[in-house]
Amino acid sequence: MNKGLGKKILTVLILPCAVYAIFYALQPKRFGNLQTLYIMFQQAFLPSISAWGLCFVMTLGLYDLSIGAIIILSAIVGTNLTLFIGTGFGYIWLFFGCLATAVILELINATGYNLLKIPSMIVTIGLMILYETAANFMGNAVLPYELSIFGRAPYNIIVGIISLIIAYFLYNRTQIGMQIKAIGGSEIIARNAGVNVGRVKMYGFLLCGVFLGIASFLSVSYGGLIIPSTRMSSILRLFPPLMGYFIGIALKKVCNIIIGVFIGEVVIIMVVTGMVTMGVPTTYQQMITGLFLLTVVGIAIKAKKDEVVK
């Protein structure tokens, strides 16, 4: 048992260690220092939290393309609420403002999906435009530096670890987590087994909202300024979590998806940081990141297929 676990841990660590080794060999002074590792570790939490939210929706076989718009709008509402009420309990207002807004917006997503009975991708694209418009009406949100303690270490790491534990627990140790996975496996079988599919999908969106709320809280604390997006550009915020999610799926056989997502984000950030330290031009960075993602996911899927054939 322990031997199996040890083997799994080693297998999981192969990917980040290999990436680290490559960049370390190329840039030992720049890439290998402890501070770089610490920063990469910190930076991995923010996209991971959004990706953990995505896990609840995407496992259900649904898509949520509005997550970027939700993060932006929630951060703007949370910040404005904090500045309006006063900075006395600023962190609390900011946190709950972001959280409540994100959950409400995901409730709207879920309701829209259940009522309209059209693919979640279409519903969330439509709602993304509405959320972007709402954010534009509200304007920029500037969070005073005094209120952005959660944008820096160790506080962002604490929030990240707590989110990881909550995500792990909800996804693996609760009835709703099991039902989400059951529907993801086969909606018909789950329905026949007595699972209320509509209700579970609603909870899936709401749980996603919880994590997006936390992500928006950290995002505005980190950058200090949130500018509303227009013309569907908020969708760009979807890709970093989505890439982590894909690597999480690829690593699913050897580790839990929640852990896999975090490892995926660490690896992606490692690749980007490695290229930045090497001075790789931005255009090539995007190309290499895309190729890297395709390679990792491609190898993982091929390994899975080979196993099935055996």
Binding site: T36, L46, G224, V276, T277
Partner: peptide, 18 residues
């Protein structure tokens, strides 16, 4: 183009180039 990405990049530079 946004604050978060700029903060990420600045941190990477700060770490890689002391």
């Amino acid at each position: 183009l946004d604050a978060e990405k700029a903060a990420n990049t600045a941190e990477r530079f700060i770490a890689a180039f002391p």
